[in-house]
Design a protein around this nucleic acid. Structure first.
Lengths: 219, 219
DNA sequence: CATTCATTCTAATAACCGTTAGATTGTTTC
DNA sequence: GAAACAATCTAACGGTTATTAGAATGAATG
């Protein structure tokens, strides 16, 4: 009797984490936080959620101990409580991709295939980036690049890409990446680069996926 | 606009999985199913949940594609949709253990420390089990043992343990395991064995944890 | 010290979820 | 084909959660 009650208490605790992961908006906030710490305002803007609702969702994540806060003057910066939280998000997303056909279909519709860099391992891409054979560009906002990025990558935020095209040598192949498979910025970047005559591809990895596979992240 | 809408649809799909993982009872059902496929009746009995409520929760899990069914006469057998579902459950549980102090406290209270086998790696335990230096016993119900168990383990269900003690040589050290860290059967077994003069310990691994660490499972 | 701005709190509504109990479906057994 | 049994479906309740809007807090700025 007592043992039964105590035992079900354990599951209740774990369910608190599950509950925190049960809202699409909270998942989007987690993905954004996986790119580095951000203020409530920034999160609200980037996820296109009302600031007050964003605050409420962050509260829920904080009560599940998935995020922590740091006050800096007027701003409160949120960050994930650990790398394992980003890994949990990726694991959840991968399980969804594996079992929900609807999700796979939706993904294929949105992130069109031809942009993807096919048949190249992370390791060989890393080697090519090191040698300069390909140029890896990080098209996320600069702050996210600063918080951690792929080795040898250059920061070239999507909204600056067009007017900074001159920085990219026209004879080199370009590989773009952004926040992860759900992020469309790298697709947009590839489209733009190709329209200007570049040989461009994307990889769907974000820093969380990259680092989960044992590869290094630079700061 | 359209991109935004499509993008948030992706998160909604993943949140379906999160939602399925947001109920303590469903988590308990997943843990039970990680031990092998089971009928609704069995699940209801083992989780101590009303059959009709169990059926409703299984429905939710099925709609999230985390479980699949197979009809065999009067019985409907449920099973996890894949090994990754068990791994997701373990990852979720580990994240909870890492971040929710309350859970760690509750765990320490329930599963008392001295029973645990400390300072031994899975590999060295496996070697000792192979050589016969220790006897590994699986105290789960026989059906779960049959569905998959640790190498060199003997099936010795907790409720048969006392009357089958003679099967265990008194001069050998015994290591018991059950469904995982939330399962108290191995603790109970250790207590019983020690009361009868055996040198006994438990490991908190279940088959899911064992196999997640790259170690083999026998069938 | 008043103003501005970021964030949080409060209150209220609507939608959803867990649970229970009763009725129903589908399969086996006699 | 009737009875027994496993599982599911339906309806209803009570509680929780997401969302919105308005008010309040807390820090920086002039």
């Amino acid at each position: 009797m007592t043992a039964k009650t105590l035992n079900s208490l354990l599951y209740e605790h774990v369910a608190r984490i599950g509950k925190a992961l049960s809202s699409p908006k909270r998942l989007e906030l987690i993905e954004l936080l996986a790119q580095g710490e951000k203020s409530v305002e920034t999160l609200a803007a980037q996820a296109a959620i009302d600031v007050r609702l964003t605050s409420a969702h962050l509260r829920a994540l904080r009560e599940a101990r998935l995020v922590e806060t740091r006050r800096d003057g007027k701003y409160v910066h949120y960050r994930l409580s650990g790398a394992d939280v980003a890994e949990l998000w990726v694991a959840l997303r991968q399980a969804a991709e594996e079992h929900l056909i609807e999700l796979r279909v939706a993904l294929e519709r949105i992130a069109s295939h031809p942009e993807a860099l096919a048949g190249e391992s992370r390791e060989s891409l890393l080697a090519k980036a090191r040698s300069g054979e390909v140029i890896v560009i990080d098209v996320r906002p600069q702050a996210e690049f600063a918080a951690g990025h792929l080795p040898y990558a250059r920061s070239l935020p999507l909204d600056e890409l067009e007017r900074r095209l001159a920085e990219l040598p026209a004879d080199r192949s370009v590989v773009a990446y952004c926040r992860g498979p759900f992020c469309l910025m790298s697709d947009e970047a590839v489209r733009l680069l190709r329209a200007h005559g570049y040989r461009a591809h994307k990889i769907s990895d974000g820093v969380a996926e990259w680092s989960m596979h044992g590869l290094p992240i630079e700061r």
